[in-house]
Design a binder for these strands. Sequence first.
DNA 1: GTCTATACTCCGATAGAC
DNA 2: GTCTATCGGAGTATAGAC
Lengths: 213, 213
Amino acid sequence: MARPRKPLLSTDRIVETARALVDAEGLAAVSTRRLAAELGVSGPSLYNHFRTKDEILEAVADSVSAQVDLSMFEDGRDWRTALHDWAVSYRNALRDHPNIVPVLARGPGRRPAALRLADAAYGAMVEAGWPPAQATSIGALMRYFIMGSALGSFAGGFVDDASAYDPADYPHLGQAHLLAEQQEKIDERAFEAGLTALLDGLALQYEQVRQQV
Amino acid sequence: MARPRKPLLSTDRIVETARALVDAEGLAAVSTRRLAAELGVSGPSLYNHFRTKDEILEAVADSVSAQVDLSMFEDGRDWRTALHDWAVSYRNALRDHPNIVPVLARGPGRRPAALRLADAAYGAMVEAGWPPAQATSIGALMRYFIMGSALGSFAGGFVDDASAYDPADYPHLGQAHLLAEQQEKIDERAFEAGLTALLDGLALQYEQVRQQV
DNA sequence: GTCTATACTCCGATAGAC
DNA sequence: GTCTATCGGAGTATAGAC
């Protein structure tokens, strides 16, 4: 076969297959040859639809950004509730596709869904009365926290092996090997605790800012 | 030359050279051949000192963790001040070696300096009266925030090109192309704002926890 | 026990035939 | 728009020199 009657590939099909592969086996498993094999074509065929492998990964990343709900910024919720719900939705999207997070963490760049996300959050904060500079900071600091929470599981970063943490070296890590087991619950709780603290702290700053006007 | 009188390599020299290479040209620039060339040696020689390339990167990461000051947990500062100073020191270390952050973000694993860091922070929170579960959450959420802030610059994630952000698509991103320019200042300010909010919020939780005792 | 030489497999990407 | 052939370079295993 040289040129089929109907195209075998489409950008959508490539992105979907790539996302499934990333989810199942990680970023490192995505080689052009491997991805092409999953699609039933030869490696270089991908280059008819994307200029580089990185473009494919960017498209996968953006398809994950597109899953974040933004409706909370439109229905008159107060800024704090909206920010909370947005953060949870954002985090859930990343948690469902943790392997692509390193690509997302590079920033929005030119990815449309990521830009819509930044635009909506920033716009809502300005709308709620935050001065532009503070609204920028809020966008940044929420991103730090959410990306950080998705990038590396805290609990999963410890080894599931008691002998790895000698009490003589690390007097307080006696239970650390248990963290790996309860990973999900611990990360979930830490995320909620951090988000609550962050929003409580921001509410304090908001009062000060509003009194100055 | 087959076997030199004096060893040309040492683990320290490899780690130092690798760190310099990572800092100067990024993670992707570190191949065993390239690193060996910098050391004046052939590629496979590295495998006499490290079992894999990944072990070298882990060692580089840990040498950065070792730069984080931990003295604030020992001199009787209150938990909030100590946590603040620790976060700043932590972030500064990462900011000085941003290219290695993806490796650090995988978690402490078996890296001694990273474990000392987790141990010190967790121990200090328990010492200050936080219940163990909350102390774990604090360790996690601080890590989220600090790693997130170091991993991808928020401001640097935007493209330095006004035409990339069409107002019709992103009504609130009119100035976004300017962010890349002022990267450092914006990231610095967002980090401080977030850290203050986080600590304010935690102080609120602390009061509640202490009242229950 | 530390190095060099060599080789194997896989990678991203390009050129050109159909 | 797909194929095959091919390139340079990656990680790393192994054999052997000294």
